[in-house]
């Protein structure tokens, strides 16, 4: 009980420290960038007069010294106000809420698909280690790791959307239709390509880690004994392989949340998919500080959660690490 309490307090403190660091860094980087947020907010309108410029700057508080700007953002953020987006002219919290679902669907789908595929491929490679299938799977994994997401996305677009015409070119609903008028199937149809692209990015990671762990399992004495008891390869996989290799695979897959978010930024950009990633890019390019900081903080919490879940799972699923009341 006491241990759990210490664990939770420790995690929360770390998380707060992380968020402070991340927001400060993001703010600093944005202020160092050559983008002028006042000009960007009016779409670089050349007719903007000096007085108008100053009034906009004053309205958004952009005329104050930068540390003051950051501190006022921080004060508002701590009181639950994420500020107004310069681009959307809406509260940042509302913008994030609108975009978050599209991103959650994209990332959730990719995360599950890449996890399952990665675990299966890694297992096949381990069971066939040193043979043809192992070679093919390893080679594909190295290829995946080296090839950038956006490039794979473009190739998928060319092949599946343009050449084969199976999937739409972009965005999350058919062109010219309201979101509320689209069916679930139509939305899924739009989700497939970006999700596949993003999944592909994550497969190699799980595959290679699963392969290593599964080879350790297969070299273990308990698998020797399982063989001696007449278990087939398939039985060994079901009885011993999954339970002993799945914890590291899940752990590694939760720590992959960071790359998942990073990948979704690129995938959303390539497929013009309107999620948090594309919004983040837009906020960065147009100097929309409150929106950028808001999304950055949400992303940091998301990644932090992934790592924390990995931590907790590791303890829960591994009976040897579990502590017993004596």
């Amino acid at each position: 009980m006491n241990k759990t309490f210490v664990f939770i307090v420790n995690k929360i403190l770390r998380c707060l420290l992380l968020l402070f660091g991340v927001s400060l860094l993001a703010f600093t980087l944005l202020k160092l960038s050559p983008v002028d947020p006042v000009l960007a907010s009016v779409n670089y309108d050349p007719n903007l007069t000096v007085e108008q410029y100053e009034r906009i700057a004053e309205y958004y508080g952009l005329n104050k010294p930068e540390p003051v700007q950051y501190l006022s953002w921080l004060r508002n953020f701590l009181s639950g106000d994420m500020g107004m987006s310069l681009l959307h002219r809406e509260p940042v919290a509302d913008v994030i809420r609108q975009k978050a679902w599209a991103s959650a669907a994209l990332m959730g789908f990719s995360w599950v698909v890449s996890g399952l595929l990665g675990f299966l491929l890694g297992s096949v490679a381990a069971f066939r280690r040193g043979r043809l299938w192992d070679g093919i799977i390893k080679w594909l994994s190295y290829l995946q790791v080296t090839v950038p997401t956006f490039w794979i996305g473009l190739i998928f677009l060319l092949f599946f959307s343009v050449y084969l015409g199976w999937f739409p070119i972009g965005i999350s609903v058919p062109i010219g239709r309201l979101v509320s008028d689209t069916s679930l199937i139509e939305r899924f149809h739009h989700l497939v390509l970006p999700a596949l692209t993003l999944s592909l990015l994550g497969i190699a990671n799980v595959t290679l880690h699963t392969r290593e762990k599964m080879i350790d399992v297969l070299n273990s004495e308990y698998v020797l004994f399982a063989k001696a008891r007449g278990e087939s390869d398939f039985q060994i996989f079901i009885n011993h392989g999954i339970r002993n290799a799945v914890v590291p695979a899940i752990t590694i897959h939760f720590t992959y949340f960071g790359e998942l978010f990073g990948g979704s930024v690129l995938a959303e950009e390539v497929f013009s998919y309107p999620g948090l990633g594309a919004t983040l890019t837009e906020a960065g390019l147009k100097g929309d500080t409150p929106l950028l900081l808001g999304i950055t903080v949400i992303a940091a919490i998301f990644v932090f959660l992934g790592n924390t879940i990995a931590d907790i799972l590791n303890g829960l699923l591994n009976p040897a690490l579990r502590s017993y009341p004596s």
């Binding site: 004495e221 308990y222 020797l224 008891r229």
Partner: peptide, 28 residues
Amino acid sequence: RGKQIAFIPQSVNYLDPSMKVKNQVRIG
């Protein structure tokens, strides 16, 4: 093996560390 020929190994490492022993005995 596991049918006509049975093998009794020499150490606890020959048991799956992540499975309750009753389930290991039930396999097969």
